[in-house]
């Protein structure tokens, strides 16, 4: 598969039949993606095409596979089947174009590291192996901290941060990655109003620079305000498109309502057999 992808012409014209799913100007193209934990499918047959320069909200109920979708795109979780293309190539070859904001709870905040050091981790990709963080990287980290409004906390130990400050630190780290496509896993989860505002400002700034942000989001009330593209997910993609077209009552009912119960049961039955 990757061999075929490499033959693709720079204009993005597909040569083989599979390549229509991986046009070079599309930040993220997902085709037929299925992921399973212990054989129980978590996301099923997902097809997505995210156009460039959009703020994308990934919305769905708990356990809908939102985080899983993100992690699978980043090759953090093995996929049962399907393909993921980042700007026309497998993610493996496009890592330098992709930034990542993991869930806040995914790390131990009592780790012996300062805010500035944590943010500087985003520059490691440019540094490469063995080389140490220097003045240039520290300056980049400082700059990112200023953008998220917590430059005064640079020398703090991360264990002393509030939840909102932790989230801003993670966002600053992603900014130093200097990517074209950002994956953000619940950046708005349990943050204060000031932090929410700061994150929205950063999203809009990234958007104005032509960057694409794919954001797992929980709060339905703010979806229409924050995002211009919405992916409604519940194991499979219920709908994906411009917010005003897709973010409708009918689609939301389909995503959150009982119409998927049959699919759920099938998945459960499958997992029982597989076990």
């Amino acid at each position: 598969m990757s061999d075929v992808l490499q033959q693709m012409s720079p204009t993005g014209d597909a040569i083989g039949e599979d390549l229509s799913f991986h046009p070079i100007n599309v930040p993220l193209a997902v085709h037929d993606l299925t992921v399973a934990y212990h054989r129980k499918p978590v996301i099923w047959d997902v097809d997505l095409d995210i156009p460039e320069g959009k703020l994308v909200g990934v919305v769905g109920p708990n356990g809908a596979g939102k985080s899983t979708l993100l992690k699978t795109c980043l090759d953090l979780i093995p996929r049962a089947s399907g393909e993921v293309g980042v700007y026309g190539k497998p993610y493996k070859e496009q890592r330098h174009l992709v930034g990542y904001v993991p869930q806040r709870e995914s790390v131990d905040w009592d780790f012996p590291v300062s805010v500035l050091d944590l943010v500087a981790m985003g520059t490691y990709r440019h540094l490469g192996w063995f080389r140490r963080v220097g003045e240039k990287q520290k300056a980049a980290a400082m700059n990112a901290l200023e953008q998220v409004g917590i430059a005064h906390l640079a020398d703090r130990q991360i264990s002393q941060l509030s939840g909102g400050q932790q989230q801003r630190t993670f966002l600053a780290r992603a900014l130093t990655q200097n990517a074209k496509l950002y994956f953000m896993d619940e950046p708005f989860a349990a943050v204060d109003a000031a932090t929410e505002e700061a994150i929205v400002k950063i999203l809009q700034q990234l958007n104005s620079e032509g960057k694409t942000c794919i954001v797992v989001h929980h709060d339905l009330a703010t979806v229409a305000r924050y995002f211009d593209w919405v992916v409604l997910l519940n194991m499979r993609v219920v709908a994906s498109g411009p917010t005003e077209e897709v973010f409708t009552k009918t689609n939301l009912e389909k995503t959150y309502g009982g119409s998927l119960s049959l699919l759920d049961e099938a998945a459960h039955a499958l997992s029982r057999i597989a076990r």
């Binding site: 992690k71 953090l76 890592r95 993991p102 995914s106 490691y124 990709r125 540094l127 080389r131 780290r173």
Partner: peptide, 18 residues
């Protein structure tokens, strides 16, 4: 640097190409 990154946030390490 690499080991510290692994210990703190292994997923981010992967996303950074380590």
């Amino acid at each position: 640097k690499e080991l510290a990154l692994l210990c703190f946030d292994d997923r981010f390490a992967v996303a950074e190409g380590f």
